[in-house]
């Protein structure tokens, strides 16, 4: 038997909104460690890794490891039915082919349950090697979202370059070019508004903007985003999920062949 209870149900809603357009189907793995998921987008260019640690839930019970194959659009439909303040319980019995979502209003005067059919998903689990990154940029997530949105009105790809000057986001398209430079900014009272750049080596990589815009749908989950870059390696765009874990997006670079 598997059961989790999350008082801040809106968190699960936000997680689903962040990944439902990128990934169609995924296996959610439940173990003593927590609730996790790894999946590629249909083009096999991007990879999403989600971890919600068991300690972060108000209640978490997992008698044996299970893997639940779920269509994300359908799970998102169900989670949309939860109120933002609702307490969410997810449970699955051993050997059944469905998972139940229960939503309780904070005052306990409305209780809903939804049963979602599970599916067999034959997905490849990729090993993500530990990497030392050439540059790590931490910046306000809303700023990153704004930059990706603005640049995508000009071009299809973004070149992210980290130098001593800061981090530069550049694009070019039919109408012209755009460059946005963000400098390190630690002298703010509010840490959520800081931009911090750790650079070991200068790095410049090219990525498809439409994926970056898709990742930015995770913005409501965290005030800061961490972008880790190394030459000729996938970028990692990470949103921490308050006290519980993270959602990490990996995107393969465009490379001169």
């Amino acid at each position: 038997m598997f059961e989790l209870r999350l008082e801040q149900g809106s968190l699960l809603k936000k997680v689903m909104e962040a990944i439902k357009d990128l990934v169609n189907d995924a296996n959610f793995d439940c173990s003593a460690t927590g609730f996790s998921m790894q999946a590629m987008d249909s083009s096999h260019v991007a990879l999403v890794a989600l971890l919600l640690r068991s300690e972060g839930f108000e209640h978490y019970r997992c008698d044996r490891n299970i893997s639940m194959g779920i269509n994300l659009a359908n799970m998102a439909k169900i989670l949309k039915c939860a109120g933002n303040d609702d307490i969410v319980t997810v449970k699955a019995d051993d050997g059944t082919d469905s998972v139940t979502f229960m939503f309780e209003s904070p005052t306990q005067d409305k209780i809903s349950d939804f049963e979602l059919k599970l599916m067999d998903i034959d997905s490849e689990h990729l090993g993500i090697p530990e990497a030392e990154y050439d540059a790590i940029v931490r910046m306000p997530s809303a700023e990153f979202a704004r930059i990706c949105k603005d640049l995508s009105s000009i071009g299809d790809t973004v070149v992210i370059s980290v130098t001593k000057e800061g981090v530069k986001f550049s694009t070019r398209g039919d109408i012209g070019t755009a460059n946005i430079v963000c400098r390190q900014n630690t002298s703010v009272d509010k840490p959520e508004e800081a931009t911090i750049i750790e650079m070991k080596e200068m790095v410049s990589l090219t990525f498809a903007l439409r994926y970056m815009n898709s990742f930015a749908k995770a913005t409501p989950l965290a005030s800061q985003v961490t972008i880790s870059l190394s030459s000729d390696l996938p970028v990692v765009v990470e949103y921490k999920i308050a006290e519980m874990g993270y959602i990490r997006f990996y995107l393969a670079p465009k490379i001169e062949e």
Partner: peptide, 14 residues
């Protein structure tokens, strides 16, 4: 011209 790579080029099946 740069071409799009796939994730499997960097991360192998585990």
């Amino acid at each position: 011209l740069k071409s799009q790579t796939r994730i499997a080029r960097f991360f192998r099946a585990s």
